[in-house]
Amino acid sequence: MNIFTLSFLFMRFGCVSFGGGYVLVPLIIAELIEKRGLLTLSQFGNLISIAQVTPGPVGINTATYVGYLHSGVSGGILASIGLIIPSLVIGTLAVTFINRWKDSIAVKGVMQGVRPAALGLLFFAVFQFLGMSVFTTPIPWKNIFQTLTGAGSGIPADFRLSIGGLVICCVSILLMWKTKISTTLLIILSAVAGALICR
């Protein structure tokens, strides 16, 4: 398989990855590992853990890594470019469409639905992030619900409050709310604090 086929394959992934980069994981397992044998499952596991701990969008990290394993630096670059081309085209068309018809009742209505929906998603994201920082594992809603109704097996033992995470989270909120600190500085300070107290 040559490098342009790989890039094209990632372009196809880009067209169908609704909901962000994490959707790439099952796609890559099905297409690149099982169907084409480009890399092994253990290579891929290593890759995902690196893509998740390094900064930047997980999807682009993954594409770059797979492309690099397949055909070096140019492979990494072309796979990433392939992945984002559908975004560029579809996103540009969507914004153009919305700008052109922004005074129509259809676009206005769509936006009136989208704004509160986006807010709902944002609150969902808050709980997801809490499970990755202030708590040690994703919040086990099912177990909590079952325990409340008296039917459950209790809350899993590895679900604990991370004191370091809680402190950093609260201090960040206070600093951002009460001072004019820049988010960049705040993120760097949190990384240092995390390395010191979240081990």
């Binding site: 701990v53 900064p55 807010l119 944002l122 609150f123 994201a125 808050v126 992030f129 809490l130 990755m132 920082s133 202030v134 991370s162 370091g164 995470g165 809680l166 950093i168 989270c169 609260c170 201090v171 960040s172 909120i173 951002m176 709310w177 988010t183 705040l186 993120i187 300070l189 949190s190 990384a191 240092v192 604090a193 995390g194 390395a195 010191l196 107290i197 979240c198 081990r199």
Partner: peptide, 20 residues
């Protein structure tokens, strides 16, 4: 490394709560 990334995520959690 993991500690540093947990720190960044905790900070981002705070920022997202505020934004939300």
């Amino acid at each position: 490394l993991l500690g540093a990334f947990t720190g960044v995520r905790a900070c981002i959690t705070g920022l997202i709560i505020l934004t939300a």
